[in-house]
Design a protein around this nucleic acid. Structure first.
Lengths: 155, 155
DNA sequence: TATTGTTATACTCTATAACTATA
DNA sequence: TATAGTTATAGAGTATAACAATA
């Protein structure tokens, strides 16, 4: 059974066809991801919370505006998102030295632990799904995800 | 320039790597999709509303439970989702003949018009992004979306 | 008793508008 | 005046729990 290779030789898909399928399929994947994040407690994180914490892990000394810009969110939305994380003591909010308007957001030690565990869980669950792919499909997936990062980055 | 083929010959990506990138990239795509849906008024639809209406278009005579099952949502969430569509007169809710517990949901003529327009807009916007892909990437995308449908279908 | 659906309640996510504090 | 952030308000999406109606 070679639908993958067979398809590669047939007529190329049109952009319109791909767009149509994208619109119906991406929410499917997103829902699965959200569900996995929610299903594996304790200390579950929502997707935006999770992504924010990943960003904070990689970028030290960032402000709330930085987070908002990175995620393409309104400043107020980001402020509230951070609120939730501060309440749970996963991150801290501190006034920046040198510019008292800026609020510097940082992961706490507890936040780092939670993040590591959430990432492990989410990835493990998604990996279970991906294990259903053929090696060729996995290869094409890697290619597509890189392309997605390129064309969907920043809003 | 053959990054696609070149990559196909190199070490295969691990499932774990793919899962990791999936977790960070899918929300990116989802956000872009949501934004496109919202950006192009009038009569914007949310993603769940949009997907529900697509389902209703293809499946006539379904109940609220059917919609809930199809989308992997709680019955109460679905009931409220339908509420919103009924309020806008995009769908109707009627008691089923033969089983008065069931609520049959159907698109109205107005709903069909709205759906057609929303679909057109969303697809056009996503197509703009996809136009940035190489033909090879577009081909791999088609493959991946089909695989996604397979492994992420139904929750 | 089991199924279908609604309502009540409570989160999170997100936005806009109005505001404060700082530069 | 412009920038960074918060607060108020609002609507969507989602869940669980309690409930009503029907089978």
């Amino acid at each position: 059974m070679e639908p993958f290779c067979a398809r590669r030789k047939s007529a190329p898909p049109s952009i319109e066809n791909c767009a149509e399928q994208l619109v119906s399929t991406i929410p499917l994947v997103m829902r699965a991801l959200r569900k996995e994040m929610r299903a594996h407690r304790p200390e579950e994180l929502s997707i935006p919370q999770f992504r924010t914490m990943i960003y904070l892990e990689r970028h030290v000394g960032v402000s709330i505006s930085d987070v908002a810009d990175h995620h393409g969110l309104a400043l107020s939305s980001t402020s509230q998102l951070i609120d939730g994380l501060v309440k749970r003591q996963y991150v801290t909010r501190e006034i920046a030295e040198g510019d008292r308007r800026r609020a510097i957001v940082s992961l706490t030690a507890h936040g780092k632990t939670i993040l590591a565990s959430a990432r492990e869980q989410a990835q493990a669950r998604m990996a279970e799904r991906l294990a259903l792919l053929s090696p060729e499909e996995l290869q094409t997936l890697a290619t597509v995800l890189q392309a997605f990062d390129r064309i969907f980055a920043r809003g």
